[in-house]
Computed example of a mutant assay.
Amino acid sequence: MENLRKELEEIRREYRQLITYLRLVNKMRERVTTALELQEVLDEICQSLVDYFGAAFARIWLYNRESNELRLVSSRGIYTRTDGSRSVIKLGTFKKGKLQRIALEKVPHYSNSIQDDRDSPIRDPEWARRNGLVSFAGYPLVLRDELVGVMVFFSRNRLSETILEVMSLYASLATLAIRDAQLITEQKELALTDPLTKLKNRRYLGMYLEETLKVSRRYGDSLTVAMVDIDHFKKINDTYGHPVGDEVLASLAEILRSSVRESDLVVRYGGEEFTLVLQRTNRERAKNVLERIREDIAGRVFDTQAGKLSLTVSIGYTTCDCNGEKVRMTRFLRVADAALYRAKEGGRNRVEFLPLETDIDGEIHRSEEETPHLRP
């Protein structure tokens, strides 16, 4: 009878503990699902493990299908770095550690004696001992049998079966939250990306240029904006058809992207027109870069389904030496476009510069129908 009473008491204790944990999971879910940005969601997932379940530290790796690797994207608790030697874990290597097995086998792993566990994801047992770490649990984040990532946490206490089961539930909720945030991020990215060239689009340019101007003013950096237009592009479309025109646009986009630095921006502004934003670039340096691009394009032969084609581009640009001077984004674009018009009027296949203070209305006389982006 006494044994039965003790057993019932233990069941009740575990039941109360389970209810407590489930309430905590619900609180964690509320915190995670109110976050909107992907990084915010990832950090909330890890921080909730620290705040509600006493994890010494928690981490998340996301799976990258293209490179077949896990990338550390969030770490909270006593260890917050995400750029260490274990920040990228290849899954295709012959030697497989615990994190790799969690990802490949898609099953949880845990240990209540990580200081003595040779297979522990912590390489330095002494560091684990100094920080009082006792246990580890790792969960694959899987949705419809597809790997999303891996969530792990380390604790100074032993992990009961109840905690492990509750954490399995939390891992499922975390997976849904992460995937939802990823989809939102992807949708935002699509809205700001040109589907043909995979370059950023005009909408993104507006946001980017506003922020870049602020930074350039703050540090007194030079900033150049250039408009690039394919000469006689309508003739290409009319002669060979729009599919060939699309091939030319995609090829030119790749040339422009590879011709500037990673810190610069290439945008498909619309039609056959592209915009370059060159950071920390003064007038002379911009002239050299843009002339090199123009010459490169003029000397190329473009392979298309209609055969080999040659083409040229006209480029107009303006530069701001942003020494505290406040310049409107629209002014930048209007002057660069006016410089492009001058290049077209001057015979095409050339680079033209106009100072930012140019009287645009006196410089060009195109109708609003021809240049809707020049409207005040």
Rank of each mutant, 00 (worst) to 15 (best):
V88F: 10
K90S: 13
K90G: 09
K90A: 11
L91E: 02
G92L: 08
T93M: 05
K95D: 09
K95R: 12
K96A: 03
A103Q: 05
L104S: 14
K106L: 06
P108H: 11
H109L: 14
I114N: 00
Q115R: 12
D116N: 13
D116E: 12
S120T: 08
R123F: 06
D124C: 00
P125T: 05
E126Y: 08
E126N: 08
A128R: 02
R129F: 04
R129S: 10
R130N: 15
V134F: 11
A137T: 11
G138K: 05
Y139K: 09
Y139G: 05
Y139V: 09
L141V: 02
V142A: 06
V142H: 10
L143N: 05
L143C: 05
L143A: 10
R144P: 04
R144N: 14
D145M: 09
L147K: 04
V148R: 01
G149K: 01
G149F: 02
M151C: 11
V152W: 01
F153H: 15
F154S: 03
S155Y: 08
R156M: 10
N157H: 14
S160F: 10
E161H: 11
T162L: 15
M167R: 05
M167I: 09
L169S: 07
Y170W: 01
Y170F: 11
A171Q: 02
S172C: 04
L173C: 00
A174P: 00
A174E: 00
T175C: 05
A177C: 02
D180I: 12
A181N: 04
E186C: 00
L190A: 14
A191H: 08
P195D: 06
T197V: 07
K198Q: 15
K200F: 12
R202W: 07
L209K: 10
L213A: 03
V215C: 12
